[in-house]
């Protein structure tokens, strides 16, 4: 077998193992919290007898390990369990929420990743001159301001004063793609501003590191223009670190958008999670936790695999 296929399979297996560990950790942590689902359901009206009855009914008296494997078995079959508060099937409610969150993350990534890499290249091309300093200053400023503040400022000035875009990012299935994009424009801008600096600075640093190499000097001595040197010779060798940080930021776009979703009242996973945390709806929290963990681990695994594929020594062994 080609060694690279072996390595990719190793990474996949490792990712699954990691996900298994994460699920155990999430389950264990919610177990460790004071109170349980029975208490949460009964709330104020909990009498010791009622609690005992409900626990018996929900199977909460059985050992934690048994319940964990039952829960895990359900997840593997696509059954995320039932919400405590509204008795709805979690998989169904999460489905539309997740696709909304992914929709937002996707468009934020489409805007921010190429922009960050382009700005990184530009910063290298004009390093230590004013374009570099300007790019650094602006992106650092936007990452330093809390995203809810940027969100509210944009809502006020762009949506309310200028009348561009919708202040509320409500979307539903009956909208056309154009309407949806118009509706999510502001959250996309906010998310882009948050993730841009990180990716752009990593691109700049990774390429500058490569710019010290002898093969960059060779390229310069071929009479190539500065941008050709950076784009053709430096960038291909800086792919691995850039992909890593891009994937970290993509993961953030999916699992870290809670605040932005709340600001724009966007019907995504973040809103859903926050609602059910306040209601102590443990099965929903567990389900969301596992989905977030899966996305996080999946994206980082992709970063690992891309880094392996980007290495010509591994791709073309002797």
């Amino acid at each position: 077998m080609h060694p690279i296929i072996k390595m990719v399979f190793q990474r996949l297996a490792l990712g699954l193992l990691l996900l298994f560990g994460a699920s155990a950790l999430i389950f264990g942590l919610t177990e460790a919290l004071p109170g349980d689902a029975a208490q949460a359901v009964l709330g104020q009206s909990a009498t010791p007898e009622a609690l005992a009855n409900l626990r018996e009914e929900m199977g909460l008296n059985r050992p934690a390990l048994t319940r964990y494997f039952e829960w895990l078995g359900g997840i593997v079959q696509g059954d995320l369990g039932q919400s405590l508060t509204n008795k709805l099937d979690i998989a169904e409610s999460v489905g539309s929420r997740l696709s909304n969150t992914l929709f937002l993350a996707f468009w934020a990534a489409i805007v921010s990743v190429p922009l960050a890499i382009f700005l990184g290249l530009l910063a290298v091309r004009y390093r230590n001159r004013w374009p570099d300093k300007l790019i650094s200053a602006v992106t650092l400023t936007t990452i330093s301001i809390p995203e809810f503040l940027i969100g509210y400022v944009l809502v006020y000035f762009v949506a309310v004063k200028l009348g561009m875009f919708s202040p509320l990012a409500m979307i539903n299935d009956s909208m056309s793609l154009g309407q949806k994009l118009n509706s999510i424009a502001l959250p996309v801008i906010v998310l882009t501003m948050v993730v841009l600096a990180h990716m752009m600075r990593m691109t700049r640093a990774a390429i500058l590191n490569v710019m010290q190499s002898a093969y960059v000097e060779t390229a310069e001595l071929k009479g190539l223009s500065n941008f050709q040197v950076i784009y053709r010779h430096a960038l291909p060798n800086a792919v691995a670190p850039i992909v890593n940080v891009v994937m970290l930021n993509l993961a953030y776009l999916v699992v870290g958008v809670v605040v932005v979703e709340v600001v724009f009242v966007y019907p995504g996973m973040g809103q859903y999670l926050v609602d059910h945390v306040t209601k102590r709806d443990v099965p929903v929290v567990l389900a969301c936790g596992v989905i977030f963990a899966a996305i996080y681990i999946g994206l980082n695994m992709i970063a690992d695999i891309v880094a392996i594929l980007a290495n010509p020594r591994l791709r073309h062994p002797k």
Binding site: A214, Y215, G223, S225, P312, R313
Partner: peptide
């Protein structure tokens, strides 16, 4: 004109070809 000179009229062979070739190409 310098760009035309480099790689056109005058070229360079370095000590370490291993370092001077781009590993990704």
């Amino acid at each position: 004109d310098i760009r035309k000179l480099r790689g056109g009229e005058v070229t360079y062979v370095s000590q370490s070809a291993a370092a001077s070739f781009n590993p990704a190409k």
